[in-house]
Amino acid sequence: MDTLRNTCRVTVRLPGPLVDLFPGSPRRLEVEARTVGEMIDALNARWPGMRDRLCDTTPAVRRHINIFIGGERARLDTPLRPEAEVFVLTAISGG
C-alpha cells in the first residue's frame, strides 16, 4: 500500500521558540500529510524530538500548544486539505 496516497502538501508555520530548539529548522516549510498527526510525524522525521515538544503521551497536542488551520483549532486527527496553511503556536502565560 502506498503510504503517501491521498496526502497533500501543506505549509506549516512554526513558532520561534520551537525553531530555536531544533537547529536548521525553518519558521515556514512544506510537508506532505493527510492529518495533523501525520504532519507532526513528518516534522519529527526531519527533527527528531519535535513530536515530544508538540504532543503528550496520550497522544494529543500538548495543552500549551495550539494548532490552527483556517482559523480553527485542530487536533491530531484533523484532516488536511491541499494547500492548507497550518499554524503551530505556543501559549503565552504569565502572572
Rank of each mutant, 00 (worst) to 15 (best):
M1E: 08
D2K: 04
T3L: 13
L4S: 03
R5K: 15
T7L: 02
R9D: 03
T11A: 12
T11E: 15
T11K: 13
V12L: 15
V12W: 02
L14N: 02
P15L: 07
G16I: 07
G16F: 07
P17N: 11
L18T: 08
V19W: 01
V19D: 00
V19G: 03
F22L: 11
G24V: 08
G24E: 10
V31G: 02
V31Y: 03
E32D: 13
V36S: 06
M39G: 03
A42C: 07
L43D: 00
N44G: 09
A45M: 04
R46G: 13
W47E: 05
W47D: 01
G49A: 07
M50Y: 03
D52V: 09
D52G: 15
R53I: 06
L54A: 05
L54Y: 03
C55D: 08
D56I: 12
T57P: 01
T58D: 12
P59N: 07
A60R: 14
A60M: 08
A60Q: 14
H64C: 09
I65F: 03
I65P: 01
I67K: 02
F68G: 00
F68R: 10
I69F: 04
G70H: 11
G71D: 14
G71S: 11
E72V: 15
E72C: 07
A74G: 08
R75A: 14
L76Y: 04
D77S: 12
T78I: 05
L80E: 01
L80W: 00
R81I: 01
P82I: 02
P82G: 11
A84P: 00
E85C: 13
E85F: 06
V86L: 09
V86P: 02
F87G: 03
L89V: 10
T90C: 15
A91D: 07
S93I: 05
S93A: 14
G95H: 13
